[in-house]
Design a protein around this nucleic acid. Structure first.
Lengths: 212, 212
DNA sequence: TAGATTGTTAATCGATTAACAATC
DNA sequence: TAGATTGTTAATCGATTAACAATC
């Protein structure tokens, strides 16, 4: 199977999100590319191309069947398979992710939360009891965890990424403000939240100047 | 002043981040495009183009002056100006952002944290006392807040965005898993965290199939 | 001078948008 | 049939990469 390109992988979850709501309320069974486009804020041609690419065929004068679209996206993004994940770093962000109920819709099951702070170990954060970092390898192997979420300080992220990869994790979702290399075969997604802030403050700066 | 394009706005904070560390330790005053490129994981030509675009000139055989680059990025992204911000939604994510110390490097000052839950109002979350939503307009106006961070459930995000815009906020940083329209002149950045998860699970799915 | 690095043009690549025929 | 919507090709746009002359 081809790996899909980055751009479409950003849009598919958005289609999934808005259509899943509609498929639950169930008052509309079909959706046109124009309606779906306006719901997620993209061009209608874009929607038709994306859906064609993932193998969903629509019907002229009717549109696309909501259920078909939802299932095709769920299938292609792997949301129908359960992935076990651990969160490393029981700070506020780690806690926020550990207690987010929405991940189950994406097939993600959080099986453990780690930290190395004695003050945190053993306490409950979200629905998880914090475990010591020493247990990392054991639990990753025992529970066949394949995704790790990194919410630790930038300084320790690279070494933890290596530990996780060696323990058998296949994908790392990195929220630490740094980048690192990982062994072949492991995929990493760097979530650089402050990048979004830069965009906003830059716009503000331009707006202020334009008023002068 | 021209607004810079999206792509470069994602890279500038990364240059800023790695060079600021180097400028503090101070052992190297110059950096070549090749070194900077490898530090942030982009092409070296890309670095030279980006720096040329923001008006930094390098020196053949030497490279770019670290301080010049840091200051140019700080200036163009508005990190040298202090922006006052409020966080709306004192859940775990809101709390994580409220207590993140790194924002000051980007010129962001969190002045208030709001929630509508009586159980939370008045308690301390991060370094902020949670305030009732009723005070939103008053505080935004009084403290001339120009950025709002939305960490509320998807359902209430659109109405809060409108309230914030009317109160005078100029930029909204939205972490709720939804999209909404805002009045002309207000900029919005939608941070869709689960999009990153889709990319990872898709890669996992491809890897599994390739093994079959 | 020789050599390393910048700065810039040209080529490539990919993503988005426009146009329109095909279809129910 | 008429009309709305899909599906697809072509055109545009922007971003990235390659090549190389200019420069210290």
């Amino acid at each position: 199977m081809d790996s899909l390109k980055r751009a479409i992988l950003d849009r598919l979850p958005r289609y999934y999100h808005v259509l899943r709501e509609q498929s639950e309320t169930g008052d509309k069974h079909a959706v046109s590319s124009a309606v779906l486009a306006s719901l997620v804020g993209v061009d209608d041609t874009q929607v038709r191309k994306d859906l064609a690419l993932i193998g969903v065929r629509g019907c002229p004068r009717v549109g696309y069947k909501v259920n078909e679209v939802v299932e095709a996206i769920r299938d292609i993004l792997g949301f129908d398979q359960t992935h076990r994940a651990v969160i490393v770093g029981a700070g506020r962000l780690g806690g926020a992710l550990a207690s987010y109920p929405g991940f189950s819709a994406y097939g993600l099951e959080i099986v453990a939360l780690f930290d190395n702070s004695p003050a945190k170990i053993g306490t409950m954060v979200g629905c998880q009891q914090v475990r010591p970092l020493d247990d990392l390898e054991r639990i990753v192997k025992r529970s066949s965890v394949d995704i790790a979420v990194l919410t630790v300080p930038a300084g320790v992220a690279p070494e933890l990424a290596v530990r996780l990869a060696h323990a058998g994790v296949q994908a790392i979702w990195n929220f630490a403000p740094t980048r690192f290399a990982v062994p072949e075969g492991v995929s990493v997604r760097h979530e650089q939240i402050s990048g979004g802030l830069a965009e906003l403050t830059h716009h503000l700066r331009c707006a202020i100047r334009d008023n002068d």
